[in-house]
Design a protein around this nucleic acid. Sequence first.
DNA 1: GCCGTTTTCGGCCCGACTGTTTTCAGTCG
Length: 586
Amino acid sequence: MTFNELASQRLEEIARMLDLLGEDTFKVNAHARAARAIADHAADLKGAGDDPSVLEGIEGVGAKTAAKIAELARTGTIKEHADLAARVPAGLFDVLRVPGLGPKTVRAMWQTLGVTGLDDLQRTIDDDSILSLPRMGAKTVENIKAGIATVRSGAGRVNIGVATPIAEALVARISGVPGVERAAFAGSLRRGRETVGDIDILGVAEGPTAEAAREAFCTTPGVKRVLARGESRCSVELEAGSSIVQADLKLVPARSWGAALMYFTGSKEFNVRVRERALKRGVTLNEYGLFPLDNDPTPHHQRPGGLETAVAGDTEASIFKALELPELAPELRESAADFDHAPPELVTLQDIRAELHAHTTASDGVMSIVQLATLAKSKGFHTVAVTDHSKSSALAGGLSPERLREHIRNVRSAGNEIDGIRILAGSEVDILADGRLDYDDDLLAELDVVVASPHAALTQDPAKATARLLAAVTHPLVHILGHPTGRLIGHRAGLEPNMDEIAAAAAEHQTALEINANWLRLDLRDTHVRLALSKGALIAINCDTHHPKDAENLRYGVATSRRGGLSKERCVNAWTRERLGEWLKR
DNA sequence: GCCGTTTTCGGCCCGACTGTTTTCAGTCG
C-alpha cells in the first residue's frame, strides 16, 4: 500500500468512526472528501512529515487534516484515529457495508443492541431483537438479511474489465426496448476508473416506454435482487463473475439527456463545482437541465412545461457552452482540481497505431508471429512488436539467448509474409532484482525494441525497487519500462518505487513508461501517468497481447492515460510509423 | 473540517426511493 493509499484509508476510517459516534455530518464529509482527494493525488505525500507544504493546494485538505497526514508520515499513526478506534468496534465497518444500513441505524444497533459486527447483527435478526429498533419492520429485516449475504459474498469494487462488458450488455438491453431513444453508461465507469462500486445506466424514455425499460432492466439475466424500482430510478444486484455488482438505471426525457449524463457521470466534487459555477451565473443545474434561477421553490422539472424553460441540458456540450466552460472529458472529472485549467487534448482509442508489447507461441502467447501481425493490422496499426519473455521467466516460456536469436530471424522472415504492417523484433526482458537485465547488451542490441519489465521480487523495499527500475530506465538499450510496479489490482500491491525519480530519469533518457492496458494491471496507474507527464516523460500504452481478446483491453489503457492527462504528442503508440521508428533507433 | 470575486462566520447539492409512518427519517448517489 502506498503512503497516499494508507493516508486515504485512515482518513476514511476516521470519517466512518465519527459518523458512527454521531458527530457533525459536515465534519464527517470533510474527512471523507479529504480521503478521496489524497487517494487521487498524483504526488507521493510521504514527505509531508518533514515538509507539510506538499499538502498545500490539495482541495479539501485544510490545516487540521494536513497535520494528521504529517503525523502519519512522521510516526506511522494518527493519534485521533487510534483514540477513535479504541471507542468504535472495527466490526462496525462491515455492518456499514450492508446495503441499506447507514450510520444512524448502525449506531442504534451498536448502542442499544450491542451489535459490534456482522455475526452480532445476524444474532439480532435470529432472536428478533432487531425489531425493537425504531422504524424496523419485516421488510427492512429481509433486506438486511439479503444485504449481509451480499457483503459476505465479497461484493466490493469490480474491475473495469469486468464491469464494462456488463454495462454494455445492459445498455444494449435498454436500447433494444422499442421507443427508447438512447442509452449509455455513466458513473465512475465512464470516467474510466480502474475499479467501480456500481454500474450506472442512463436511458431516454417516458411513459409506457419507461415502464418497459424498467421491466427489461429488472429482468436482465443475472439479476439476483431488485433493490429499488421507482418511476425514474431502479437498482438491482447483478452477478459479476464470481462476485456481485449493483447496477442502477435512470430514465430521463430527451431534453434532460445531457444534464443527466453529466450529473450521473460525476464525480461528486466535479458536480458541486459545476453547480456553484452555475449559481454564480444566475442559473441552477440539476439532473434535468440548466434553468434560470427564480424564487419558485418548485423544481423546474415538476412545473408544467418546466423542462422547456431550460437554458441547456439536451447535451453535455450545451451545458459546458452555457457555462462558458471548456468541454471536460469524463476522465478528467475526477476532482475539482483541474476545473479552471484548459484541458489538454487527450489521446483517443483511434489515435493508437502500434502495439509494442506482445507475446507469441514462442513464449506464453497463443498466436504465431503472423497471426499476431494480422490481428494488429486488422486494428489499423502500422507497427506491432514481438516481445516474448526472456530466459528468467521460465514459467512463461522465456527464451534462451539462442532461441531469441532464432526468434529474431523468424520475425524478420514473417515480415515478408504479410504486407501493410511493420513487425518489430523485440523482447520483454526481465529486470532482475538487482536491476541487471536478463540478456547481455550485445544481444539486446540486435533487437528493434526492448521492453524491460519486473516480474519477480515484487515485494522488495522501495529503495531497492527505485534503484532497480532506475537501472532499467537509464539503460541505453531499453525503450520501454513495462508494467513498472508489477501490481495486480486487488491482488498484489507490487513495487512502490519513487516515481518522481523514475519519471525524471525516463524523461531524461527518452525511455517510455508503459501503461499496461490489461485491466488487472493498469500499470502505470492514472496518478503515476499524471506524475510522469509532469516530469516530461513519454508514455507507451500496450496491451501486453498474449491472446486475441487482449487487444480489447486497449480502451482501458487509453482511459487510464486520459485520466492522467496524456496527449497524442506524448504517447509513442500514437506516433506515425516514421516518428516511432526514429525514436526506436535513438 | 473546509472554504471565501457578496462571507474569516456560517454556510456546506439535492432529488429519488423505501419502509415505516400518519407526515417522514434514513439511505443512496
